[in-house]
Write a protein that binds this DNA or RNA. Structure first.
Lengths: 219, 219
DNA sequence: AATGTTTTGTTGCAATTGCAACAGAAATAA
DNA sequence: TTATTTCTGTTGCAATTGCAACAAAACATT
């Protein structure tokens, strides 16, 4: 859920492109499938602008969103699509992707270029962010009830503010998808939680009134 | 689900301990909480021997198993326990853990020790394995039904054999935990799938008879 | 051999949830 | 503006699932 500023991204982009690793920019229109067909080896995609979803087909026939990509997000064949062939990336808006030849990155720089080690450490940070995102998703999906999933999602959003209220970053439909629950069932559960004075809601603005030990789940 | 041979692990362990990074061995008894209290910085734990579970408390009050650790598995504060403070590691048997000071690894080796780059590339492989494991878990949890989750789990197991049958690596109780479903509900669903001639089962040995397009989900 | 513990198997019941279908509101495009 | 698409909201119904509780089997320990 953490985004990088455009400035930081441009900076990183510059470092990558002016360093010794193999990389390539590519543009995709909204709705297009994003692939790294240009580079043969395992590549890592860095979102320079736009939005995209990492989606997968479940064995049940549903299409679910694993991860929502924003400026600064990374994704990779090697990291996401390895064990199951039913994972792919779809652009939601026009996007620019910087593909980076991944195995090369961590090797010793043959040219001793000044940006190499800086780039490496920043990409490592992106990788750990990626781990965090996956773990957030697992935290959500590990809950058996819609209520648990939604409130877990809320704690993740709240961790970035320091209040007890926040604005949902996506539409309720998209959030239902992300939580892997039926949208109408989510609506029903939201109403229920309002009735039980656990939350209040005006459109996408949510306030957490009370939930047992919810503070234990905030950082 | 991929394990490394003891030989490979001993080899990696040797490389780590004889190289320039900060590391330390620790032993834990069955049932103990595994922590890296010795090292201040972000550390990465490598299982040298024994078994352990990465578990987390959900907001609903359930305890669920995120990942099952075996010889060669890695885990890390930085990668697992970042955003939620309710994640911890418990040993199932007596275990030996090699803690490695993580941010140091990818820096230039000040001693130019011969093992450094080999160690780095092997640890990177472990990291990608870790990504794969997390993604497997997400694939499972993204299914809304017990049937979908179980069959997804089966495809992951089958990917290692080249047959249509395999033996469940854990007890049914543990598998129910891993799939985040109720054990009795899993038993019920297994019986149902047998009745529908989707699978057969003798104890922990499962044979997949037929499921629409299940081959699409195998590598 | 006796004991305790974990695993497996079963069932009734209540609660949650997905699904389908519809309709109005809001946003976007033409 | 009008038209079109997406988003929000609601409901009935059926199916799945979790929960609780129990008992037998398998396994481990003393």
């Amino acid at each position: 859920m953490q985004n990088l500023s455009p400035k930081k991204i441009n900076d990183l982009q510059f470092k990558v492109m002016s360093s010794c690793v193999n990389s390539r920019m590519a543009k995709f229109k909204a709705g297009e499938y994003i692939t790294s067909f240009g580079l043969r080896q395992k590549t890592l995609g860095l979102v320079i602008s736009g939005k995209a979803d990492v989606v997968r087909n479940t064995i049940e026939g549903n299409i679910i969103v694993t991860k929502k990509l924003d400026v600064g997000s990374i994704f990779s064949d090697a990291f996401s699509c390895f064990s199951l062939d039913s994972v792919y990336v779809v652009s939601k808006t026009d996007t620019e992707i910087l593909f980076i030849d991944y195995p090369q990155i961590f090797k010793k720089c043959p040219m001793n270029c000044p940006n190499h080690s800086l780039m490496v450490s920043e990409i490592l940070n992106l990788l750990t962010d990626n781990f965090v995102t996956l773990n957030e998703k697992i935290s959500i999906l590990s809950c058996r009830t819609i209520r648990g999933r939604f409130l877990t999602f809320c704690t993740l959003c709240l961790a970035e503010t320091n209040q007890n209220s926040f604005t949902l970053p996506y539409s309720l439909s998209e959030i239902a998808d992300y939580l892997c629950v039926d949208r109408s069932a989510l609506m029903r559960e939201l109403k229920k939680m309002e009735e039980e004075n656990i939350i209040t809601r005006q459109n996408r603005h949510i306030t957490i009134l009370d939930y047992p030990d919810i503070n234990d789940y905030l950082i």
